[in-house]
Simulated assay, not measured.
Amino acid sequence: MTSPDKPEKEIKFEPPDQNAYICKQIDLFQTFLCNRDEQREKLSNAIPLWDCLPLYSVSRQWAHKMRKEGNFPQLLIRDSLYKGSKIRIEIQPARILENGVVTEYYPGANEELIEAALRKIATIQNHGYYDESTPRYGVNFSIYQLRKELKNRGHARSYQEIVLSLRILARSSIEITANNNKTKIYDVSNYFSRLSSVSRFDIEEDPHARWYVEFHPLITKALKAIDYRQFNYELMMSHDTQLTRWLHKYLIAKFTYAGRGQKFEIRYSTIKRDSGLLESFGNHRKAMQYVRKALTELADKGILEPKLLSIDGQENLIPFEEAKILGERGQTEDVIYTLYPAGKFSSESKQANANLNRLLEK
Rank of each mutant, 00 (worst) to 15 (best):
P4N: 11
D5A: 14
K6S: 14
P7S: 11
K9S: 12
E10R: 14
E14T: 15
P15M: 09
A20V: 06
C23K: 06
D27R: 14
F29G: 00
F29L: 14
Q30T: 12
T31D: 12
L33Q: 10
N35M: 11
D37N: 14
Q39V: 03
R40N: 09
A46G: 11
P48D: 13
P54H: 06
K65G: 06
M66W: 12
E69Q: 15
P73K: 07
I77D: 07
R78T: 08
Y82F: 15
K86I: 08
Q92H: 12
P93N: 12
A94G: 09
N99Q: 14
G100R: 09
G108F: 07
N110G: 14
N110K: 14
E111L: 08
E112G: 05
I114R: 00
A116Q: 08
L118Y: 04
L118A: 04
L118K: 00
K120P: 03
I121K: 03
T123G: 04
N126G: 03
G128F: 02
G128L: 03
Y130C: 02
E132H: 13
N140V: 13
I143S: 00
L146I: 12
K151S: 14
S158Y: 13
S158H: 13
S165C: 15
S165D: 13
A170E: 06
R171W: 06
I174T: 04
N180F: 12
I185N: 10
Y186S: 10
D187A: 11
L195C: 04
S196Y: 06
F201G: 00
E204A: 04
E205F: 10
D206N: 14
D206H: 07
A209R: 02
W211L: 02
E214M: 04
F215Q: 00
H216A: 02
T220F: 03
L223S: 02
E234G: 07
H239Y: 15
Q242E: 10
T244P: 01
T244I: 01
H248V: 07
K249C: 05
I252V: 15
F255G: 01
T256Y: 07
R260P: 01
R260C: 02
R260Y: 12
Q262W: 05
I266Y: 05
Y268N: 02
D274W: 06
S275T: 11
S275H: 08
E279P: 00
H284Q: 13
H284M: 10
K286N: 14
K293T: 11
D300P: 01
D300N: 14
K301T: 14
K301C: 08
G302N: 07
K307T: 13
I311H: 07
D312V: 09
N316Q: 13
L317A: 10
I318E: 13
R329L: 07
R329E: 10
Q331P: 00
Q331F: 08
T332I: 15
P341M: 02
G343E: 11
K344W: 05
F345D: 03
S346Q: 01
Q351E: 04
Q351Y: 00
N357K: 10
N357A: 12
N357E: 13
R358M: 12
E361C: 05
K362V: 12
K362P: 00
